[in-house]
């Protein structure tokens, strides 16, 4: 297991280098250039002289390779320079947003486990019962409803009509409830079905029959054999789609004005805040890779076959 993790960590280095080149190159190829964007953000008219001065100030007149290495050196130490828009250091600002997004994702994960596991188990215990049909309908709706719509409906019900939960921003614990539920809903819908089908298949499997034939208690047969083995496809699927959750959070953050990475990047693009965009790309790539790594390790932990093949 240790070897497997080290191998995966070493694979990260080339990926991150490519990402850094892309993030750096992005700003160089955009029309207008960084200097103009800087001046616009400062409300200074972009004349020949002011552009030259800005290029001098931002170090844009140095050779490209030198610029890249200066930037890379900073990025490696988590120093991404100063935001054009706010004139403040980028790293603390982006880390604050990152923490909010991660908090949202973690809360969504709690919903996911809390709802989809029991839903999957109860539908599998009595297939084609009323409950199973209800959960199938719920899964169909949940998987096909776009999250902005779900978000608006929740706000309408819990904030406007019932006045129970805050409709936007991050103020207290209650502010987490609706955005995280919105983010989780699509996943709850599909994972509860994956779990149900996988449970039904495993209930009829030879190894469950053999477990019963050895005289194991029904509880043990279910938890150690049926359920345990049924979690494998659920976790594997989750590992594949965990990146999508990050992407999905952009929409949810926008709907609920959540001060996370999604909102940060939208406002930065609007302001053409290039250093911020660069930092965002690098940090998101890092995050994406790390989450995938954790997901893969989770898969290897639950399925010994993967450990031995790697």
């Amino acid at each position: 297991m240790g070897k497997y993790i080290i191998k995966r960590l070493l694979q990260l280095i080339p990926i991150l280098l490519v990402v850094s080149i892309l993030a750096f190159g992005l700003v160089r190829v955009l029309p207008g250039g960084a200097a103009v964007a800087y001046l616009t953000a400062r409300n200074i008219a972009p004349t020949k002289e002011s552009i030259a001065a800005a290029e001098e100030y931002l170090g844009l007149n140095q050779p490209l390779l030198t610029q890249y290495f200066i930037w890379l050196k900073g990025a490696a130490a988590f120093d991404f320079g100063v935001s054009y828009a706010s004139n403040k250091a980028i790293a603390p600002e982006i880390l604050g947003a990152l923490r909010n997004t991660m908090g949202l994702a973690a809360a969504a994960m709690v919903w996911l486990v809390l709802i989809s596991v029991p839903l999957g188990i109860f539908s599998a215990k009595k297939p084609n019962s009323a409950f199973d049909h209800f959960s199938r309908g719920f899964a169909f709706l949940g998987a096909s409803a776009p999250s902005f719509l779900v978000g608006f409906l929740l706000v309408l019900l819990f904030s406007v009509k019932l006045n129970l939960l805050p409709s936007f921003g991050k103020r207290n614990f209650a502010s987490y409830i609706m955005p995280s539920l919105t983010l989780a809903l699509g996943y709850i819908a599909s994972y509860s079905r994956i779990l149900r089908n996988s449970l039904l298949e495993n209930m009829r499997s030879t190894n469950v029959l053999y477990a019963r034939a050895r005289g194991l208690k029904e509880k043990r047969v279910f938890s150690a054999h049926t359920l345990r083995n049924s979690m494998i496809p659920v976790v594997t699927n989750f590992c594949l789609s965990v990146g999508g959750m990050l992407a999905g959070s952009v929409i949810v953050e926008d709907v609920f004005s959540w001060p996370g990475m999604g909102r940060l990047i939208i406002s930065s693009i609007e302001a053409r805040d290039y250093p911020m965009i660069q930092a965002y790309v690098v940090i998101m790539a890092l995050l994406y890779i790390t989450i995938n790594l954790v997901a893969d390790i989770l898969c290897a932990a639950i399925n010994p076959k993967i450990r031995y093949e790697a």
């Binding site: 499997s205 030879t206 190894n207 029959l209 053999y210 477990a211 150690a224 054999h225 345990r228 083995n229 494998i232 639950i302 399925n303 010994p304 076959k305």
Partner: peptide, 10 residues
């Protein structure tokens, strides 16, 4: 079928 009777994760 011994190959499928044992639980592969145990």
């Amino acid at each position: 079928n011994p190959m499928s009777a044992f639980n592969p994760v145990m």
